[in-house]
Amino acid sequence: MEIHQLKTFVAVAREGSITRASKRRCLSQPAVSAHVKAIEDTLGITLFERTARGMTLTNDGQRILVKAERALDTHRDLTEEAARIKGRLTGKLRLGAEASSNSDAIGRLLRTLFERFPELEVTLRHGTSLDILNSIRNGDLDAGFYHETGEPDADLVTFEVSRFDIYVAARRGLFTTSQPPDWRTLGEMPWIISSASFCSGQVAEGLFRAHGFRPRRITHVDRESVTRTLLAAGLGIGLLHAETAHEAQRCSEVDLLCEAQKSVRVLFAHSANRMQSPALGVVNSILHAGMSGERSFSYVVRRHALTRDDILVTA
């Protein structure tokens, strides 16, 4: 039984589908099926019930899944321990980010990783905050940047990268801004918002509940640049992040009617059970250095036996 077969088994178990597991593992469907059959033949038990709706774990399969995930965690720890012994970072680091996350922090992080750790293969995938959190929890991502309006879950280790406010905006001159917004009137207007899986979409839904209305027409747009264009054209009411909102206001495109949400936090997060990862230790130190302006790497040096020269960052 090979490690790559165990990875395929876990992927099928999590996805519930040969097709989705093949995409996740970048394998052909016959290869995925062959991996599962090889494990079943080796263990002498049936892991899945194959139905028209997909692959469902048997009772035996559920017990094996727990052991398989532990084995993969142990394998990952082993390879990372070898990297610590060698004093360099190798392997893969999979990061996620919501499209409107702090691009300066992400760019600085990636540049530093590329320059200082050429043997570390880094990938960045964009998605909604919900997608990123789910991918961190199911192991598809090692860490990611997401937007948090409340308190992060206890199963995550987080670090605040930045904060931003969100404003309700409308075409310039559409409403009088000298008075508080008339929510009854705003409720009659079309609204342009992102889906509820994005931070702005969640804030919009909170506004609707707080003021007791539901717009008659909602257009879902998941790119803030498109929202800005539609608002400037007078096609509805919408939400903009502070930087975009103030720029659009300076360009006389929109008026800011009120603050919808104050201090949304952009957090870098990874699972609490990855605290021993040398790559994530380095990432945390780079982000801390970027925020504080201090070159303090005691966390990495102490926990991961990397030298100061290995991880020196030039801000």
Rank of each mutant, 00 (worst) to 15 (best):
P190F: 10
W191F: 07
W191S: 05
S194Y: 07
S195G: 13
S195W: 06
A196E: 10
A196H: 12
S197K: 11
S197Q: 14
F198G: 00
C199W: 05
G201F: 02
G201A: 07
G201I: 02
V203T: 10
A204W: 00
G206T: 03
F208W: 12
R209P: 00
R209H: 11
R209Q: 10
A210H: 01
A210S: 14
H211N: 13
H211E: 10
H211L: 05
G212Q: 08
R214T: 13
P215C: 09
R216A: 12
R216W: 11
I218F: 13
H220D: 01
H220T: 11
D222A: 06
R223Y: 08
R223G: 01
R223D: 15
S225A: 15
S225Q: 13
T227E: 06
T227A: 06
T227W: 01
R228S: 07
R228Q: 05
R228A: 12
T229K: 10
T229Y: 01
L230E: 09
L230F: 04
L231R: 07
L231E: 09
A232Q: 04
A233V: 01
A233C: 02
G234I: 11
G234E: 10
L235D: 13
L235Y: 07
L235T: 04
G236A: 13
I237E: 04
I237S: 03
G238D: 07
G238H: 08
L239E: 04
L239G: 08
L240F: 10
H241N: 15
A242L: 04
A242R: 14
E243S: 15
E243F: 14
